[in-house]
Every structure is written in structure tokens, then in C-alpha cells.
Design a protein around this nucleic acid. Structure first.
Lengths: 301, 301
DNA sequence: TGGTATATGTGAGTTTTCCTGACAGGTGAT
DNA sequence: ATCACCTGTCAGGAAAACTCACATATACCA
């Protein structure tokens, strides 16, 4: 059982005074007044029961005991300084690993990546595809983008980026063929709906909030992943339901149309960061992402 | 210019938690509540911008960053602990070096030394003969006995031991020859007075406070040191003036007599210790010396 | 499955520490 | 002597740390 150390702040003050040979300079380095340092030294001498400096008018000289303590404390605080600096520096220079769902990655993030890296050059962004059961696998990440709803699990700082908006999308040719232009949403019931096997409830939720009886929906082909679903829609294989950002570029380029726009779900796009990491870098990223999401919103037709 | 360290108390808490693998045990070792330690860890993680522990419900595990910091902080705090313990231990076991004027040493301290070392066996007392221009040469001493008057110079803790009392002494045979028994102090004017060259004012001061005109005194043989002076008196070479403790044993054994007793001077016997050293050991010594001085006072005739 | 024991996290309020700002004392140079 | 500079000390106020109580989460056990 280690016996109690003297006041660490006092030891720190001593280390600075011993290294610089001056109370005033030490006070300057520690950003305190010389009075504070003087008190620390006195307290330490009393605590150790031995004088550490010989006062000689204008300056100080270490006693033999003081010299031994200087050697030890100099090394000890040097080691601490070095280790802490290293952690901080490496923290600042390490690549920022961002987890991102595959579909968002492919259809939204990658197209914007060049711009992002140009706007935030210091970030050194690394993307890692990652479907998000939240607390899983977020170890080793500096942040993750995901869609979800409160309550958020503890241990994560969650910054909202945008509401998750979803809506039916279809290729322009198919839209024309099905006479969907300027039609009413009820038209969805006239066809088999493409969906993902992992989220079959997407259509029914949309139908409910649009005022369509879910029972009237006819689910058609199921795809293993949202990414495939959207590709199928682009290829004119049917009508899909998709989060807005994932089809924003296709809508803009005319490869897809969203006959009835998009509407909010209960979920939000968020940026999740470990609660204890520096907010600085992730804040910058969150701001950028928030703006980019806002720009991906199609004007409601 | 070293960049600022994180809170040292937080680092200390971290070191204990990392070493013991538990917030609670660390709190126990540091004699604080677990809440305090938990806060320290959080503060440190925020300050360094990186998580140091992975929380897994009931326990903790170090992150890679935490492991590096544990290595550094463990070594650093170990070094500090060792150095401080060493200073304290060596402080407690080192010989206690006591400076003492030669005359007091020879005529008072040495005869009592055996008793002193028996009474305070832990002190490991070393005596160093030393005439006392106070702040000189008291470096390297743990304490010094000396006679002097206020104001005392700064940097020293001064513990009073006894008033300095001085009085004329003479050998019994000479006292008889000069008919000093039951005489009045004015009788000193009838003879040449032994004195020290370093303190010729001793007689005149005594005369003044006794009510004798200093002009009437006849100074006789001068001696280089109080020690010689007293030896001369013992040898019957004349009347000397001496501090009471220095002749206490000679009075008790009958080798000297003090026809008119002793009287206070403005000075005091004191024990001076460096202001910043442990009071513990010097307090014990001071108490012992105070008692011994008190026992050296001859009952006023 | 719910209960218990154990551990950590968090918040309000208080204690303790630390710091500041002003002044005193002492030294060396001009 | 005077000045510039440094250290020491004190009272009062700012900041940090602590405690206590409660919340939360896990493991183990009946």
C-alpha cells in the first residue's frame, strides 16, 4: 500500500522552480502568481519535513534533499508531459474514422467525398462501411452516421443532422407508363411494390402516414439491401421506397422521380460520437454533414 | 515551453484506477469516494480528448490510449512516491546534528550527554561545536543551541529554553581569602576581574543591573574564550563572570561559588531550527533541554 | 425470473484548496 | 541612495474537489 503522496500541485510547482531556478519564472510558466508558487513550495517543505531550497536573498539554491527531489520529479513530470502530449498529438493527427451505412455511403457520401475532403482537409477522413446496430462495432470509430430514433443509448454523443424523410421513387419511364405524373398517392396500390427484406415495414408506415390502408398494398419483389432496391427502381423494375438522401442525386439527374415527394419519419439522421472524445473534429464534420443533408432535400413538387 | 499538463489529481486518480482495475478500489486507496474518482477520470478523458477506459457495465478495461498512459503514469507516480518516501524516511533516520557553543558543550552538554541519549534514543544526536553568528554555518545543522535576544532572524524557528542568567563566580578558597562570603556585590570593585576579550561588556552590564557604577570596575586578565575564563576561576586565579549553566556543575561540586547568585540578562538560551524542517524531533529535544536547564539553576542564596 | 450484491455514473450542495492582489523585506546594480 | 528585481506573507474570493444520495447496469443466485 503506497503511502500518500504530498500535494501533486505542490510537487509540480517545485519541479518548475527547481528546473528554472526561480519562483517567478516558474509562476510564469504555470500561469499563476509567484505567491501561489511560493506557498506551494512552503507547503511541500513542511509536508516532507525538510527544506528543499536555501534562500539567499534574491535567488534560490537547492539543498541536497531538493536536488534529489528535483531529479525524481523532473523525470516524473517529464514522462507525464510526454505521454499526455503524445496522446493529444496523435489524437489530432490520426485519421478520423467515420462509420456509414453502405447504402448512404455508396449513393450519397461517395459522390460528395471530394468536396468534403476539400472542405475539411485537416480531418483526414476514413470511411468504414458499417450497418449500425449502434453500440456494436462502433468501437474503433471516431464517429458514425446513422438513422435512428431516441432514446439513444448512453455513452454516445448524438448530434442531429436531418429528419429522415422517405418516399416512393420510380424511374421516369415507368412513371410515364403507369401514368403517375400528377397522380395521387393512392396510385401505389395499383402495382407490386419493391422492398427490402430487412425493412418490410417501410411501405406500411409510409402508407399509414399518407392515409392509405396498409392492407391495400401489394408487396412485390424483395431485395436483400436498400442499395439493390434503389438500383432496381432506377432500372425501371418497379416502385421503391427510399430515404431521400439516397436518391437525391438520381432525382436531380432525372434517373428517378418521386411522384409524391417525401415525408418525415420518426427517425433522424444523426452523427454519433463516443461521449468522451474531443468534440472539436466531430463538430466540424457534423456541421458539414448537416448542410449537405439540407442541400439534398428536393423541393416538394 | 512545455505545454500544460492535465489536472494532476485526475492523472493520479487515473493511475490508481488503471493499476487496480477498479474505480472503487482506487477511491479506497486515495481515501475519497468513488464518485470523486469517476469525475476525475471523465475530466481526464475530456481533457485528453480520447476515452481511456471501455465501460463494460460492472468493470472497466483500458483502451490502447489508456494503456499507454497507464505505463507512463505508473512509472511517473512510482518515481515520485519513491523519492518522497525516501526523503521522509531518511529525514526520520538521519542523525540529528546539533550545533552548540564550545563552552556550553564542554561544561554542560557533555556531562549530560549520556542521560540525554538514554532519554531520547531515537534522536541519534550528533553534536557539533559551533560559535553562533546565527545564520552563518547553521546550514547542515538540524538545530543549534545558542544564547541571544530577539529579534531573531527570519528563516528560523526559535524555541526558548531558559533565560540567560549570569553571575560572578570564584573558587571557594579565593572567596574565603577575599572575605566574599555574605559580602555585598560591591565587593567586586576590590579586585581585578577576569573577563573574555570577546565579551568585555559582560561585567559592565552585570554591574549596571546590580547598581554598581561600571567605572569602579577594574578589569584584570582577559582570556580568549569563556572556557578558559571559567577554568581560571576554578584555579583560583580570580573572579569570573559566567552564564549559570556553564558553572552549574562546578557550583554543585563546590569547585566554584557564586557569592551573589545569578541574574537575568536580556538574552535567552534558545533552540533554533530551520523554519521549514519537521518540528517533531526538535520539539522533543527542546523539551528535554528546557528541563535540563531548569534543573541547572542554583537556588538563589 | 426476480432479487441481491456489486460497480460505475451523475447531480446538487458544500468543503477544501488554490489563486490573486497588495504589501513587506531583502539584495544587487546604477 | 535609489531603482529594479526577487521572494515571502496575508486576507479574501474564485475554482476545484469532495461527499452524499440516487440512478443505472451487470453478474450471480435462488
Amino acid at each position: 500500500m503506497p503511502r500518500p503522496l504530498p500535494s501533486l500541485n505542490a510537487l509540480h510547482a517545485f519541479e518548475a522552480v527547481a528546473r528554472l531556478g526561480s519562483v517567478s519564472q516558474a509562476a510564469n510558466e504555470l500561469h499563476v502568481t509567484h505567491g501561489a508558487v511560493s506557498r506551494h513550495i512552503r507547503a511541500l517543505e513542511e509536508e516532507l519535513g525538510t527544506p528543499l531550497f536555501q534562500r539567499q536573498g534574491r535567488g534560490l539554491a537547492l539543498t541536497p534533499a531538493g536536488q534529489r527531489l528535483r531529479d525524481a520529479s523532473g523525470a516524473a513530470f517529464g514522462q507525464l508531459r510526454e505521454a499526455c502530449d503524445l496522446l493529444r498529438v496523435e489524437q489530432a493527427h490520426a485519421p478520423f474514422v467515420l462509420g456509414c451505412p453502405v447504402s448512404l455511403l455508396a449513393r450519397w457520401m461517395i459522390p460528395r467525398l471530394e468536396r468534403l475532403m476539400a472542405d475539411l482537409p485537416d480531418l483526414d477522413l476514413h470511411l468504414r462501411p458499417q450497418e449500425a446496430p449502434f453500440d456494436e462495432a462502433l468501437g474503433g470509430l471516431d464517429a458514425a452516421v446513422l438513422a435512428g430514433e431516441a432514446p439513444w443509448p448512453g455513452g454516445w454523443r448524438v448530434q442531429p443532422l436531418a429528419n429522415e424523410r422517405v418516399g416512393p421513387v420510380v424511374s421516369p419511364s415507368l412513371a410515364k407508363e403507369l401514368h403517375l405524373v400528377r397522380s395521387r398517392p393512392q396510385a401505389v396500390t395499383r402495382q407490386a411494390l419493391l422492398h427490402t427484406v430487412s425493412r418490410p415495414q417501410a411501405w406500411t408506415r409510409w402508407a399509414q402516414s399518407t392515409g392509405i390502408a396498409p392492407a391495400k398494398l401489394q408487396l412485390g419483389q424483395g431485395y436483400p439491401h436498400l442499395y439493390h432496391l434503389i438500383e432496381a427502381a432506377v432500372a425501371g423494375r418497379g416502385m421503391a421506397i427510399a430515404p431521400e438522401p439516397l436518391v437525391a442525386d438520381d432525382l436531380a439527374s432525372g434517373r428517378l422521380v418521386a411522384p409524391w415527394g417525401f415525408q418525415d419519419t420518426a427517425a433522424q439522421w444523426v452523427l454519433a460520437t463516443p461521449a468522451r472524445a474531443t468534440a472539436e473534429r466531430s463538430n466540424a464534420l457534423a456541421t458539414w454533414l448537416k448542410n449537405a443533408f439540407a442541400r439534398s432535400v428536393a423541393p416538394t413538387p
